[in-house]
Design a protein around this nucleic acid. Structure first.
Length: 175
DNA sequence: GTGTGGATTATCT
DNA sequence: GATAATCCACACC
């Protein structure tokens, strides 16, 4: 799912304002068996409860006292897997870095903790457009910022569009 | 109630 | 590469 979400578009319609972002970088978090996931060992706390919801729900968390990270739940109820949205492209006129990185992506789309647990499927203001057509050339690396996660630190679960200037991270992680 | 540290980013060297 | 900003969730008492 993390790979399949590359190139798909998340849209927010807020009155007359419509914001759309094409997803170009994602990371998979594989539930209880994944030491980097908040659902590691089946942990259930109020914060992570949305991650156990049905696919299509949003899981948002707050980190480092100032940033939000948005995930799309990818499996059935009770499983606890999700895909972190790490970077996206806005309109051509927008700065390349506007949605580059999970914190900036949330800031640009106005995603905050109160959206955690929201069902994107059939939502009146949010839509996830699954666009047909060829997938972009995809790069694969370990995930960013999970050095604490034991062997899961090295799992190749970060996916990105090699052609996009909006991919986040150091240069060696963008080629 | 207290202590620890983070799925980040900006700004320095 | 190093570090600060900044606060909440979580574990543990």
């Amino acid at each position: 799912m993390a790979r399949a979400l590359l190139g798909q578009v998340i849209v927010h319609q807020d009155g007359g304002v419509r914001r759309a972002a094409r997803i170009v970088e994602t990371e998979a978090y594989l539930g209880p068996r994944d030491a980097a996931a908040h659902t590691w060992q089946g942990r259930r706390t109020p914060r992570v409860e949305p991650m156990y919801m049905d696919g299509g729900h949003l899981y948002v968390f707050f980190v480092y006292g100032m940033h939000h990270c948005a995930n799309i739940v990818t499996r059935g109820e009770g499983i606890g897997e999700a895909v972190l949205l790490r970077a996206a492209e806005g309109p051509p006129a927008a700065p390349a870095r506007l949605l580059s990185g999970p914190g900036r992506l949330c800031a640009a789309l106005g995603i905050e903790s109160d959206m955690s647990g929201t069902d994107l499927v059939g939502h009146p203001r949010w839509r996830l457009l699954l666009r047909p057509g060829p997938h972009p050339p995809v790069g694969v690396t370990p995930r960013i910022g999970v050095d604490y996660a034991g062997e899961a630190r090295d799992w190749p679960l970060r996916f990105f569009d090699r052609t996009s200037p909006a991919v986040s991270g150091p240069a060696r992680m963008r080629g």
